[in-house]
Design a protein around this nucleic acid. Structure first.
Lengths: 225, 225
DNA sequence: TATTTACAATAGTATTACTACTATTAAAAA
DNA sequence: TTTTTAATAGTAGTAATACTATTGTAAATA
């Protein structure tokens, strides 16, 4: 049986649904490539328009600005990750194994699982690591948050928190630990790659190192009390 | 006895030492106010020039761009924090008490301690929380890092790692834990303020909550093995 | 006194972010 | 079938931002 998994991204994020046209899909796909290549600061709608042979104004009909476009990509990512967590934890009864699966998902590229996925997963992974915090570390965060555009992140965090609580019902800070795991997955990977003195990365590969560090941390915290 | 503590910021960061003139000091002081007020994205040299009644070009003689100016502020902050850690741990023999002092320093505003400090510490604290990751989460991180401009951050991290190792010599990841503590202090404060569902903050105040969460986490990790 | 030197201001340019308006096309209505 | 309209993308701009080449001026030095 062939099937697709489709995520409806909150429509407050875009002006025009990029999933509704070929051009729209092309914008997202190329945006991922270009944000990876240039970094978010150097990424502009002009450059993207040039890349996909359209005009700046056309892209502005889909997204108010590049911040919203990044937010769209991350909403898609968070939704997909939450789906994967749900999917991969099906039929796993051991809560310890569940947590290990979560740490692995947080520290590795998205696997292909059923749904078609034509985005470059390696690039997407790098974008999440290096750029994701820029969508909320802005002056307008309160205003932006009113439109529920961070809901997929909060849901992901809540799902992980539930598994934490299932593993240890006495632990006091499941949500904070959950968001810390997500953020730590990002910065430990970034640091071990670019600023390794901020980590204890050795000969082992970055993603593997981050998973080891996080596993150790997680179970010491939860097995203690 | 009156005394001052002065930090020499790496001279690769600036074109002209802002400490060398009244105008330079004025630039830093007002930059802190303005970055706090507008957020880093909306902060420009034009607006800063208008604020301190000089011209854009003049500010460009001190700093190559606004990224470098932010880096300067953070270098100063990291150096001062490392100094405070060193200073406050003097004559404390109990390593547990040392770690608690560190967590408190990471989660609270800079105290006045000896040295004159005419920057707005509340604003500086907010800037560190919301903007600090933007100095390394850039495409040019490798290039920038070559000039040792992240040294104060790495030193701070190493100092904290030493205390961790003193407390528990068997713990495998002192530096990663140290950088995780620093980053967690920032995003848990940010989240509990703006996106509280990502945390377990309750009635207690944000800084206090973050300190409680981090204390709990730190000692569970280190007392375990 | 003449001459460097240090510094800041003037006056620009290129790029970025964004928008008002126009042209095209395809579907719906007459 | 023809006309109308609605949806879409493109043209052609403006304002703000990021940055620089050059000029002016005042203090330090010869």
């Amino acid at each position: 049986m062939d099937f697709q998994v489709i995520f409806k991204v909150n429509e407050k994020i875009y002006l025009r649904d990029p999933e509704s046209s070929e051009l729209g899909k092309h914008i997202i796909k190329s945006a991922i490539d270009l944000i990876y290549e240039l970094g978010f600061e150097h990424f502009t709608f002009k450059k993207l328009a040039l890349e996909i042979k359209t005009t700046e104004a056309t892209i502005y009909r889909y997204f108010e600005n590049k911040h919203r476009l990044l937010l769209y990509i991350l909403n898609w990512y968070w939704s997909y990750l939450a789906y994967l967590v749900m999917f991969q934890l099906q039929n796993v009864s051991d809560t310890k194994a569940k947590l290990k699966t979560i740490v692995h998902l947080l520290t590795h590229e998205l696997p292909d699982s059923g749904g078609r996925l034509d985005y470059n997963k390696n690039y997407l992974n790098k974008i999440v690591i290096a750029e994701s915090s820029k969508v909320y570390l802005v002056k307008e965060v309160r205003e932006i948050n009113k439109n529920e555009v961070f809901k997929p992140y909060k849901d992901l965090c809540a799902n992980i928190a539930d598994v934490i609580t299932a593993y240890n019902p006495d632990y006091q800070y499941p949500k904070s630990l959950s968001s810390t795991l997500i953020e730590t997955a990002h910065h430990q990977q970034f640091f071990s790659n670019f600023l390794p003195r901020l980590t204890d990365v050795g000969t082992v590969e970055n993603k593997e190192f981050t998973a080891l560090f996080m596993d150790d941390m997680l179970f010491k915290i939860l097995d203690k009390s």
